[in-house]
Design a protein around this nucleic acid. Structure first.
Ligand SMILES: [Mn+2]
Ligand SMILES: [Mn+2]
Ligand SMILES: [Zn+2]
Ligand SMILES: [Zn+2]
Lengths: 144, 144
DNA sequence: CGATAAATTGAAATCCGTTTTCAAAATCGT
DNA sequence: ACGATTTTGAAAACGGATTTCAATTTATCG
């Protein structure tokens, strides 16, 4: 987990950006966070300990994390941007419970391979992709 | 293509909604449309022939189409809602060119099957899913 | 150290697509 | 045609993301 911090600091100096207390606080909170939080939720969380830090700063800093590669932006179609820590250059996709919001991550090399084949067949070069499976988690099937 | 019209009319009467000239005009334009248009683009298109019809009505009517099953809402992550005619209950996914916006549809039974297996493994019941491959189409690779 | 230029901050304003409001108009069963 | 109900279009409201701006903080250099 030290790698993320280094990567961010390196990005700051490379871009001639400044290292501020707010940025360090947000970074630490972000790395400790339960993932897939919306900007708003993350901000509300952070505000408990650090009421002085503004929403704009949180928003801007999360964008920085994304730019420098330590965070991934996610969009689960609910109109909120979400962020998660990105580990190395691992990729994963998501199961999303539409009832309780639970999110399960998965990785499937077979699907990834099939995606590449499809792209080739249509003369596409893939830069990115999103796969999300929406449904009910075990708990919510019981409740329903 | 008559089926869509019937399905919409049936939905209207079932929900005790009224059949208006605007709704019929929008329906015809929608069925004739080049797919994956945003509400805004569809509205601008429609307005050329029917300047009297308001954006709100177009928006509400597209929602109706979606509710009654003759349209599918799509969200390609650019902050615009898009609509397309849904054929029978066929499902398909999308290749999206991030340069020129070209959209290619595809279907892959193997991927669908693997998705089901993943869901089972995590005790999920899938209701819906989205798979989008973002990249460059053949033309745009050349240009770049 | 200071001084200074440059970057950052937080609050508020703005943006932009979506959705709602509301009074006037249209629909449709009778 | 009547009257209850629904629909319409313009404008306002909404909600999240982004920008503005004056005040503050940071980093660099003498
Ligand atoms: Mn994740
Ligand atoms: Mn399509
Ligand atoms: Zn659940
Ligand atoms: Zn292209």
């Amino acid at each position: 987990m030290k790698k993320h911090e280094e990567q961010f600091l390196e990005y700051l100096s490379r871009k001639k950006l400044k290292n501020t207390s707010q940025r360090m606080i947000i970074l630490k909170a972000f790395l400790r966070q339960k993932s897939h939080l919306s900007t708003e939720d993350f901000y509300l969380q952070l505000r408990k300990k650090h009421p002085g830090i503004g929403y704009a700063t949180v928003h801007r800093t999360l964008k920085l994390f994304s730019e420098c590669g330590i965070a991934s932006e996610r969009n689960f179609g609910d109109g909120q941007m979400r962020f998660e820590v990105s580990l190395d250059n691992e990729h994963h996709d998501h199961l999303v419970c539409t009832d309780c919001g639970r999110i399960i991550e998965f990785e499937d090399p077979q699907i990834e391979k099939l995606q590449l084949e499809i792209a080739q067949k249509h003369d596409f070069v893939i830069k990115d992709h999103r796969l999300e499976l929406y449904g009910l988690c075990g708990d919510c099937q019981a409740t329903a």
